[in-house]
Design a protein around this nucleic acid. Structure first.
Length: 488
RNA sequence: GUGAGCGUGGCGGAAUGGUUACGCACCGGAUUGCAAAUCCGUAAGCCGAAAGGUAUGCAGGUUCGAGUCCUGUCGCUCACUCCA
């Protein structure tokens, strides 16, 4: 599959255009994605971002790139917001639950790992933690200070946006202008130590009530919100790497400030390509606790959220998300989820048929063109909706072959089968959970269906329908086809 | 207020400036004892009896040609405060 490399185009938030993807180091890809902050259980919106980047990671792997995928875990409280106020979200959660910060982090990390398993996310190459890289963060802050782009005030260090913007373009990612930022009506906090509104904390002096405190050249304190990503991406991927991803809501200020820190310390933008996954809405609005449209990834699987009348399998949820492009907002509604569930079943049923298909001398349609269309869709900025449309074209062909309307040669069937399964399972990450074929159940089913066939032959519909309905109640669906009866 | 983006059929959601994909729902047909599943097809907003016309929030513009580009306008989402 490696000959398929080289056609991939990715939308770059920096340029606002789709760009031909060429890795910095041939055949190797470095990708950094902003991971979760572990002060609460990740919600469905968080999961959408991680699922989208999981799909991107999977396709890069499938193209035979050697990918180093780094996704950080924020386990240090974001100690300050840009107004300089203390916002230690982890510490706050710890006080609320009356436990130590580490317990909070550990608790939600366990939950996050469980969600990754449920939603079939491949583990990243590395999941570094902020607290494990305090020294690296301090070293980068020192570099920025040495370059004259930060200043120390009363035990805290701030990034000097005005000085920076004389050499670099602050706002290159978000489209913001430093001059306009200055005109914003937002008033500076009275005790604010910053020289300029847009300046942001690299290091913040500790407050007495802080639960996590580290030593630094500027005194005891905490790292700023953005510096951990700069430190960890540099450590594991170098000062410049291929792809940096995250949710759209991180574009400003978080990613803008990461660029500033990287340029301010190493003189270059950390990533060639910046990718942003769009938000998830529920009934037309951003998911939020105050709006009452909030639910957890586990609740929707278990069917315990009052927003939906039933649960949906992780496969259906992944499929549903993959039907929308990663750069579009996606609206969660029960009607849309039900539609996705049916569509997913149709696709997965067709895949189950693959190894039972009859082969012929020739194929009645262009199989390799169909397979190429899978790649073409993904090469166009990971266009999973188009991919799925093409997969349905394949599913239709599979059904037609099964009905003996279309024919396929043995070689073509191998080609189609391999790719159909690869794109669905390996790239979209759908697990195709088949009812476990129990070694004891199969002969029992053979017997039961044989009895039903006899009843049908005798036109004993009462008995045959009793068997069918009884099996349905047990979760086994009987399908009467031209070639006999199957079950699943 | 400032920045980014979006507005397409009943629903979800695609479309390098070139016939509005695909899935679900609906309708008709094939298949079936009846279903389910599968296949084929119509249709999909508005005007019209029909032919046809007009339709991608609305109003203009550029173009042989606009969902796509430009201007204005209305609405929505996100960001500017912890955010995926």
């Amino acid at each position: 599959m490696s000959n398929r490399k080289g056609k991939l185009h990715i939308y770059n938030s920096l340029s606002g255009k789709k760009e031909h993807f060429e890795p910095i180091h041939q055949d190797h890809v470095g990708m950094y994605v902003c991971g979760p902050t572990l002060y609460s259980e990740p919600h469905m919106g968080n999961m959408r971002t991680f699922i989208n980047f999981d799909m991107i990671y999977r396709y890069l792997l499938f193209l035979d790139y050697r990918v180093k995928y780094v996704r950080n875990i924020t386990d240090a409280g974001h100690i300050t917001n840009s107004a300089g106020e203390a916002v230690d979200s982890i510490g706050k959660a710890a006080r609320l639950e009356q436990v130590q910060s580490l317990e909070i982090v550990y608790k939600y990390n366990v939950k996050f790992q469980e969600l990754q398993r449920i939603y079939n996310l491949l583990p990243p190459s590395i999941e570094p933690t902020a607290t494990g890289h305090i020294q690296e963060q301090i070293e980068i802050i020192e570099k920025i200070l040495d370059n004259g782009l930060a200043y120390v005030v009363n035990g805290s260090v701030y990034f000097d946006v005005k000085a920076y913007s004389e050499k670099f373009n602050y706002g290159i990612l978000s489209g913001r202008k430093v001059d306009e930022l200055a005109e914003e009506t937002r008033t500076l906090n009275a005790q604010d130590e910053k020289r300029f509104f847009a300046d942001f904390a690299l290091w913040k002096k500790a407050n007495p009530e802080d639960m996590q405190i580290w030593r630094s050249p500027w005194g005891d304190g905490n790292p700023g919100w953005h510096i951990e990503c700069t430190a960890m991406s540099t450590k594991y991927l170098g000062t410049q790497f291929d792809i940096h991803g995250g949710g759209l809501d991180l574009k400003f200020p978080h990613h803008e400030d990461e660029i500033a820190q990287n340029c301010g310390s190493f003189g270059c933008n950390p990533a060639k390509i910046w990718m942003h996954a769009n938000m998830l809405n529920v009934n037309g609005q951003k998911m939020s606790k105050s709006l009452g449209n909030f639910f957890l990834p586990k609740e929707i699987v278990e069917g315990t959220t009052p927003l939906f009348s039933k649960g949906f399998s992780p496969d259906v949820l992944r499929f549903f998300m993959m039907q929308a492009h990663y750069r579009s907002t996606l609206d969660f509604t029960e009607e849309a989820l039900n539609a996705a569930e049916k569509g997913y079943t149709r696709l997965s049923d067709a895949i189950q048929l693959l190894d039972k298909l009859p082969t012929g001398e020739t194929s009645s349609f262009d199989v390799s063109a169909l397979v190429d269309s899978f790649y073409t869709a993904m090469d166009d900025d990971f266009n999973t909706p188009i991919l799925i449309a093409n997969l349905f074209e394949a599913a239709k062909r599979v059904n037609l072959i099964n009905d003996k309307v279309d024919t396929i040669s043995l070689n073509d069937l191998k080609l189609l089968s391999t790719h159909l399964i690869a794109f669905v399972k390996e790239i979209l990450g759908l697990q195709l959970n088949v009812a476990q074929s129990d070694a004891k159940l199969a002969p029992v089913m053979d017997l039961v269906l044989d009895l039903r066939a006899q009843a049908r032959a005798n036109k004993d519909w009462t008995t045959s329908d009793k068997i069918r309905d009884g099996l349905a109640a047990a979760g086994i669906i009987v399908k009467d086809g031209k070639e006999g009866t199957s079950w699943s």
